[in-house]
Design a protein around this nucleic acid. Sequence first.
DNA 1: GAGCTTGTTCGACGGTTGTCGAACATGGGT
DNA 2: ACCCATGTTCGACAACCGTCGAACAAGCTC
Lengths: 102, 102
Amino acid sequence: MELHEPELREVPVTAVLAALADDVRLQIVRALAPGGEHACGSFEFGVSKATRSHHLKVLREAGLTRTRVAGTTRYVRLRREELDRLYPGLLDAVLAERGGVA
Amino acid sequence: MELHEPELREVPVTAVLAALADDVRLQIVRALAPGGEHACGSFEFGVSKATRSHHLKVLREAGLTRTRVAGTTRYVRLRREELDRLYPGLLDAVLAERGGVA
DNA sequence: GAGCTTGTTCGACGGTTGTCGAACATGGGT
DNA sequence: ACCCATGTTCGACAACCGTCGAACAAGCTC
């Protein structure tokens, strides 16, 4: 299992933004934001596990998360430091609980 | 001509991010970032005027730009203050020239 | 008014994306 | 060894998106 995790510098900005521009993925990022690892299965938004797996892959390949394999479970965490270094303010702006949504 | 320009608070975050997650639109935002008004026709990226019109509409309806009509030409500008107030750091992070792309 | 310029709207097209169930892979338990 | 749990991958399908040319609308100038 290759676990393809790109260097953040090599990911186009538009790909990072596109990865964040989805409701389910944003929920995942919000859940991850406080820090620490989460088992993939711990995300219970109303989607099938196939869909959840897909979203986690998108996040990983956009350079937003890192995944550790431990037995049959996989633990995900936000690459916060790298993100804050490369895109200072991005995560804070996006995660701010104030609002958005109609 | 209605010129539908929503309140930024009422636009879902994902819509703002989706609007920025496109190469052509990001180029437009970068051109607008220094400030001031630009005529729609002044954007010469390799797309037809139909496509350009479409992208400007997406930006406007995501609350990112404001448009002033003057005769047959339309002038566009970034809603920078509102964006910086609601999403501090977002624009700076996204516009930073360092970057992205392989 | 004729004609030009600027920009929008209308299909249409092809590609991408989100979603799912089903099948598969892997690694524990007992 | 068998079963169960956790995830991934594989079609498939519908919806959406970026793109275009063509038609249209509105305003300016002669």
